[in-house]
Amino acid sequence: MSKLRLLFEKDGPARYISHLDLMRTFQRLFLRGGMFIKHSKGFHPHPVMSIVLPLPVGQSSCCELLDFETEQELDCAVLPALLNEGCPEGLRVLEAYEAARPVRELAYVAAEAVLDYDGGVPGGAGARLTELFARPVLIVQKKTKHKDLADVDIIPLIREISFEERADEIAARLVVSAQNPGLNPILIGAAIEKELPAYRPDFISVRRTALLDAAGGVFR
C-alpha cells in the first residue's frame, strides 16, 4: 500500500466543478479505471483522498495535486492514461507519483490573472496598479468560512506581483501565500475596485500556474 499523488490540470468546463464535486468525480474516475482506492474504516466507509490545495470555482490550473492511498500496487506510469479515459472535459491527469513531500511544505501559489478592459486599458493603468500593490497596507473584504465578511490586509500575502499591459487586457503575475492563510488571487480585483475604481476591470480570469515551496522551488 502506498501514498500516491496525482498532478492534474483543470480547465475548460471542468473549471466550474466545485471542490466537493471534484472529489466525487475522482472517486468515480478510479472506479471507472477499475481501481479501488483505500477506504476509511467504520460504519460508512469513504475513499481516502484529499486535494492538496482546493482551487476556487471558475479558475483554471495546470498544477493541481490530489493525494490518495491504494489497496493494490498501481503502476504510476500507466495511471494517468487510465484515469484520463474517464475524465470529464477539461480535467486531465498529467502525472502520478509517490507523495514524498508533506503538504505543509507547500508555501506559495503562482498565478496569472488576466484583467479584461472592454473599452481598452485605461492610460497609465500598469503604473497605477503597481503603485497600489506597493502600498504597505491594503485592506479588502474577504468572505470567511462562516459566510460573513472580514477585513484582511492582503499585502503580507503577496510575495510578488507584476503587471503587463496588452491591447484590451492587463496580465498580472502573482506569487501569493498558499495556506495558513492563503490568498485567492481574484481578490486583487476587490482591491482595485475599492482603491482605484477608475481602473476596475470588466472581468478577471485566474489561472494557477505553479505550486511553490518556501524557497520558491516547485512543490510537487
Binding site: G12, P13, G58, P88
Partner: peptide, 26 residues
Amino acid sequence: MDKRLERILPRVQKPARYVGGEYRQV
C-alpha cells in the same frame, strides 16, 4: 466557451449545471 457566458457564471449558483462537458456527453 462564449466569453459572455464565462462572465456571468461566477455570479450564479452551481455554475457546473450550465457548461456541459460531462463524462459520456456526446
